[in-house]
């Protein structure tokens, strides 16, 4: 990181190759949109280049630090543009099934899973994405989100509980739509979400 702070582009390129996909995945899970995720990843690495001297190696690994930047950028982006919650999965997920019927079913399932994730309040979503999908440890996630480990566990529990409710209702589309609509109304009314404490 000192080398990046000194303007070493080769070391910067190595860092980009090593971490860019993880940051892209994180931003995609947070925003549900590939283009926005790429923008966030680009901005994250731009900040790595311009603010490398601010990184403190004794406090966080490079991965944790980059996730922290990406987390803040995602939260800012979501607050600026609520339309980022639009789910765009059709062109982005590689075809894994050839049978049309199976493909449709798979797409629908993906859409619902993504919608359930996007229906979570921002911080709950970030907590679950960082721990479940990004595979970061609880200390790292707590540091990224500026939380104590206890508060993180509480946030994760609420997040998983909400997801369980929504995903269980995947079998019952009508009930699922009602839950999504209820969550959406809660958000618009400025509520923190199911069980979320601010």
């Amino acid at each position: 990181m000192t080398a990046i702070a000194d303007g070493n582009q080769r070391v910067y390129a190595d860092a980009v190759r090593q971490h860019s996909r993880a940051i892209g995945f994180y931003a995609f899970r947070m925003l549900g949109n590939k283009d926005s995720a790429e923008d966030i990843a680009q901005e994250t690495f731009l900040r790595l280049w311009t603010h490398a001297d601010k990184w403190q190696s004794d406090k966080a690994s490079m991965s944790t630090w980059l996730h922290r930047i990406a987390h803040n950028l995602c939260i800012d982006s979501m607050r600026k543009d609520r339309s980022s919650q639009t789910v765009e999965l059709e062109d982005e997920i590689p075809d894994q099934r050839h049978d049309i019927e199976q493909q449709q079913e798979w797409d629908e399932r993906q859409q619902r899973l993504q919608s359930a994730l996007m229906a979570l309040p921002e911080r709950q979503r970030s907590a679950i994405v960082l721990t479940h999908y990004q595979g970061l440890g609880n200390q790292a996630v707590a540091s990224i989100m500026d939380l104590s480990v206890d508060a993180l566990e509480s946030l994760l529990s609420r997040s998983r509980r909400a997801l369980r409710t929504m995903l269980a209702e995947l079998q019952d589309p009508e009930r699922y739509k009602q839950t999504l609509s209820h969550l959406s109304n809660d958000k618009q009314a400025g509520h923190a979400g199911p069980g979320e404490q601010t």
Binding site: Q9, Y12, R21, L117
Partner: peptide, 23 residues
């Protein structure tokens, strides 16, 4: 359930980032 959620592969993201000019 969560593991079933897929995501783009972002294979080209690294080279896209490296193509942008650095300030």
């Amino acid at each position: 359930q969560l593991d079933q959620l897929s995501a783009p592969d972002f294979l080209q993201l690294g080279s896209q980032i490296l193509q942008q000019p650095l300030p």
